[in-house]
């Protein structure tokens, strides 16, 4: 297995990455109906139809950043800003249309199998075979990463105990567990393969405050004791503030700010008052979104141009 050589290494490199998707084109008859309908409401709104009928959306737009080994790197952004697409690109589940992504110097396209051995991911939706028990799901997941059954069984019990899962739940079907409990099993599954780069896509969504803290402590522990690098997306500003070394704010597929939590706060501070990370987020994304929405919803495009 690949071993990083020193602590100042770049763990994840994202260089000018673009990812676009084709979306279903609006049929001509629907365009015509919409056009006549909207023309009746607003004579100047015909310029909007071309935007709505376009076939390509850009989910990640020329994104560049790197994550140092042993760093906890946060990605914040409103819904639909491209956070999950970015995580999927890093997970080798999507291929970039442009740019390059490297994990410890290994290109995710050319060396995908080596990269896969180094990473693991926890997604917002705990994806499991719901009829199977945590034990059966975890053993399946661990074997895919080459961990033996007995070793996986022992480690899984340790991790789940640490995350506060009852022992009796270990052999019951996942469908009988709460969403929060399922999420804890998902976290245990990712930790079982001992990844040196862990991708966490809103891992604490749906967890109660106590469970959130347990998971956050576990993430910190993983970084400190296993030298892991962690890239996390979250909507929880307090969580981001508490555990992230640096944070990138993503909006409409673009990075609008990247700094330490304190650095971001300084960026938008007024009158010497330190804003919360939530205020920073609203300042950098919400306000801008409102402005853009205002423009695109009420002003014809030819006026904008």
């Amino acid at each position: 297995m690949f071993k990083p050589t020193n602590n100042t290494q770049v763990a994840v490199l994202v260089d000018d990455v673009v990812k676009q998707f084709n979306v279903a084109a609006v049929p001509v008859w629907r365009k015509l109906i919409r056009r006549s309908h909207q023309a009746a409401e607003n004579g100047n709104s015909t310029e909007l139809k071309a935007r709505r009928g376009k076939e390509v959306i850009t989910a990640v737009d020329h994104v560049t950043f790197n994550v140092q080994q042993n760093e906890i790197f946060g990605v914040l952004g409103p819904n639909g800003s491209g956070k999950s697409t970015l995580i999927r690109l890093l997970s080798t589940l999507l291929l970039p249309d442009q740019g390059r992504i490297e994990v410890f110097g290994l290109d995710i396209e050319k060396n995908d199998m080596q990269v896969k051995r180094l990473i693991n991911r926890v997604s917002v939706d705990a994806a499991f075979f719901k009829k199977l028990s945590p034990k059966e799901n975890l053993l399946y997941g661990a074997r895919l990463y080459g961990v033996s059954g007995p070793e996986a069984n022992r480690k899984a019990k340790e991790i789940l105990k640490r995350l506060g899962l009852r022992e009796s739940s270990y052999t019951s079907p996942m469908e009988d567990m709460s969403r929060g409990m399922q999420q804890k099993v998902a976290i245990a599954r990712a930790f079982l393969s001992q990844p040196i780069v862990l991708l966490l896509d809103e891992p604490t969504t749906g967890l109660d405050p106590r469970s959130k803290l347990e998971v956050q402590a576990f993430i910190n522990e993983l970084r400190d004791t296993h030298n892991a690098t962690i890239l996390i997306t979250t909507h929880d500003m307090n969580e981001a503030d508490a555990i992230c070394d640096r944070i990138a704010i993503l909006d409409e597929g673009k990075i609008v700010a990247l700094d330490t939590p304190d650095g971001l706060k300084k960026l938008v501070s007024h009158n010497g008052q330190t804003p919360s990370l939530e205020e920073v987020f609203m300042q950098l994304t919400g306000k801008e979104l409102v402005e853009k929405d205002d423009l695109t919803d009420f002003v014809p495009e030819k006026v904008l141009a």
């Binding site: 199998m113 080596q114 896969k116 051995r117």
Partner: peptide
């Protein structure tokens, strides 16, 4: 159907 396809495809399995 189970929603596990991404997890399986992300694993280092030929």
């Amino acid at each position: 159907w189970e929603g596990t396809i991404e997890y399986t495809f992300m694993a280092p399995v030929r």
